[in-house]
């Protein structure tokens, strides 16, 4: 029983954090972001390095922490399990970006090359793109052709756990921004972090983030080991972590006061990512209903 990262996994975490911090600082040009897809391919993050899903969860968490802009989540977490060897190679090399359809919607439809439709067929990425709450993460309606059947299968726990891990990173960053602000901002002659009305909100966020992280790592381990608890663990992780991320951002905005409500401050971008993660796929309430079915049996209505 050992629920800690290995030294190699911690090293990976530092490398990912370093790469993303260098290329995606908070003072970046938010309207013109480069997804550095080739660099990701060279680092092996698109499937080339043969990472376990626990290690991929580290990547997703860090991509949330840095608010990485590219279609990494959909290529690696949603689409890869469907692909055959040749398609995987092209994806790992960074040649083809993939997304996958979920309940009629395709994330990043306009910026990927190929899409796995809901019947498991490969389709060229064509269709109408719609804006979402997160401007870096549009959704599209696929224009269907006959498509080519793919050999793999949907891996729902993997997709949900990846979103949970990303949400943990978002929540962690929102917490850190709030703490930093509360340590430096002065009102009534004191740092505002002195006031318990402020500090206790951040303490609550800390507890939320740690609990969310525990669920995300548990789910990641279950997915990596094909443990039978993976579906429940992933549903729990996505429900809890995405809600935790939304709350973390909301509390951080509150702690920041007026500046937290401005377009200029980056917090709203983290908040929008959190809302996207909470809403895409299955919402927390639907996930809890799934878990209730597993715990209690399907509801008997009188």
């Amino acid at each position: 029983m050992d629920f800690a990262f290995t030294d190699e996994q911690r090293q990976l975490q530092r490398e990912v954090r370093g790469f993303l911090a260098a290329n995606y600082p908070l003072d970046r040009d938010w309207e013109n972001q480069d997804d550095r897809w080739q660099e990701l391919a060279e680092l092996g993050w698109l499937g080339g390095a043969d990472l376990s899903f626990v290690e991929e969860a580290i990547l997703f968490e860090e991509s949330g922490y840095a608010l990485y802009p590219g279609p990494f989540l959909v290529t690696v977490a949603f689409a890869l399990p469907w692909l055959g060897a040749e398609d995987r190679e092209a994806a790992a090399a960074g040649t083809t970006k993939w997304s996958a359809e979920d309940r009629g919607l395709v994330p990043w439809l306009g910026s990927v090359d190929m899409v796995v439709d809901s019947d498991g067929n490969a389709q060229p990425a064509r269709g109408e793109e719609l804006p979402t709450v997160d401007p870096t993460r549009p959704l599209g309606r696929l224009e269907r052709t006959n498509g080519t059947p793919l050999p793999g299968a949907r891996d729902v726990p993997r997709a949900r756990t990846a979103m949970a891990a990303e949400a943990v990173g978002v929540a962690q960053r929102a917490l850190e921004l709030g703490v930093e602000y509360a340590k430096t901002r002065e009102q009534f002659g004191k740092k505002i972090g002195v006031y318990q009305a402020v500090s206790h909100q951040l303490a609550d966020t800390y507890a939320d983030v740690e609990l969310a992280r525990s669920l995300a790592y548990w789910a990641a381990w279950c997915v990596a080991e094909e443990d039978e608890r993976a579906p429940l663990a992933a549903a729990a992780a996505k429900a809890f972590a995405t809600e935790a991320a939304v709350k973390a951002c909301e509390r951080s905005i509150q702690v920041h006061g007026g500046i937290g409500f401005t377009w200029e401050h980056p917090l709203h971008r983290f908040y929008k990512r959190a809302l996207w993660l909470e809403g895409f796929g299955r919402r927390p309430a639907e996930l809890r209903a799934e878990i209730a079915d597993a715990l209690l049996g399907v509801a008997v209505t009188a």
Partner: peptide
Amino acid sequence: ERIAAEWIEMQALRYTNYR
């Protein structure tokens, strides 16, 4: 849904202990 939420948070505490 509330029972499921308690189950989720119990698991979160359990794995936080493990961490």
